[in-house]
Amino acid sequence: MPGFGLGFGIIVTALSLVVLIPLAALVLKAAGAGPEEIWALATSPRVLSALRISFGLALLAAAVNVVFGLIIAWVLVRYDFLGRRIIDAAVDLPFALPTAVAGIALAALYAPNGWIGALLAPLGVKVGYTPAGILMALIFIGLPFVVRTVQPVLAEMEAELEEAAALLGASRWKTITGVILPPVLPAVLTGFTLAFARAVGEYGSVIFIAGNIPMVSEIAPLLIVIRLEQFDYAGAAVIGVVMLLLSFILILGLNLLQAALRRRLGHV
């Protein structure tokens, strides 16, 4: 292929400058701590708890976003209604909003004395300053990813597919699960992966609503910031590398799953 050498060179250079060298520096910094110290830190209860909260809630938020993202994309593609364009544009707001603003807004709403929090408090439901609050923030920032990856695939789908299935005698449920969902599944998985990746690293919006109670509602990125503020750069780097490895394994797995799915669905 003509131009391969040049193209490859540019990609490697750009990737190195933006991704590979900073990551290598991160690993190098972490290595400065010494193996025993690294292991002790990485397996300390507070770090493990934070990692569990960060990854667990990010996966959960991405799963919730798949459900709502699919429904929103479906409604935006299939129905024409007053204000459709406004809602379509509003989907992107979590992209554009500074995350701290989102966090403060959510905290104001869900705090025990906030508009929604005050309504929930008598029912014994606490959202603000709990893991549930973290989940709210992660859902908020991840939603556009699923909508925007699924929407074009749904738009491309012929409306007649549903009619064909119905005339062949398929129930509504069978039409959705057997005809409509399978072709969008790879896009759904892409959206899930993106929403998850975004949620795992999210900091700004979460810290305002999380309450940041160690072992309860403390996320891993916050631990990194705490270490940095204490000038413990090696410690911060260690937690960073652990997050990096976990994320890489998860995202690699998701991508492999997606590739297998595409092959099985006949997108040769």
Partner: peptide, 23 residues
């Protein structure tokens, strides 16, 4: 239909069998 409207994620056999399996 004019645009065939086959189920693209299914084989030819699964497409044809769809109506029978939906019973």
């Amino acid at each position: 239909f004019q645009s065939y409207v086959l189920f693209r994620h299914m084989t030819v056999a699964d497409n044809i069998a769809f109506g029978l399996r939906a019973r």
